[in-house]
Amino acid sequence: MTDVLVVGVGHPDRGDDAAGWLVAERLREQLGDHDEVEIVRLSADPAGLLTLPAWDAAAHVVLVDAIVTGAPPGSVEVLGADRPLPSPRASGTHDLDLVATLQLARALGRLPRDLTIVGIEGARFGVGDLPSPAVVAAAERVACALDAEVRALGTRSSQSAG
């Protein structure tokens, strides 16, 4: 039974867009095999989230993605589902972006009860770029924070389910 779903969104070969993947990979190393936590790396196709069994099953969902707000690279912003979602950029030709996917989930009544979105500010997104050092460092910090939080959430969920 999955209590916590952590999704790293991004692309490993597009500079700071790797932020979500870096967090997911680091967290997987730290947690090892953990029955109650599912960690997913997602590149294109955020709509795939809605077909993951854990999307509906998990008590807590954490999404980690690179963001661009103009803040210094490596800045971390945490958004709860209680905050209004930013509007999607426009309709895509090929997939729904993350925000559109979340809005679709809301329209279908399938937003997770407890959703946290962690944004890591990126600066460069070219194909083949390496992630900025500041983003790599931020991904480490986020993974460590999530490690502690995810363990606590998983434990609380197990207790409440029991």
Partner: peptide, 19 residues
């Protein structure tokens, strides 16, 4: 299925998006 239902059907049914 992603394309037919979520990306292209809204065009034909007069919606801006699947949302």
């Amino acid at each position: 299925v992603l394309h037919v239902f979520l990306l292209h059907a809204p065009d034909f049914l007069g919606y801006q998006s699947a949302i």
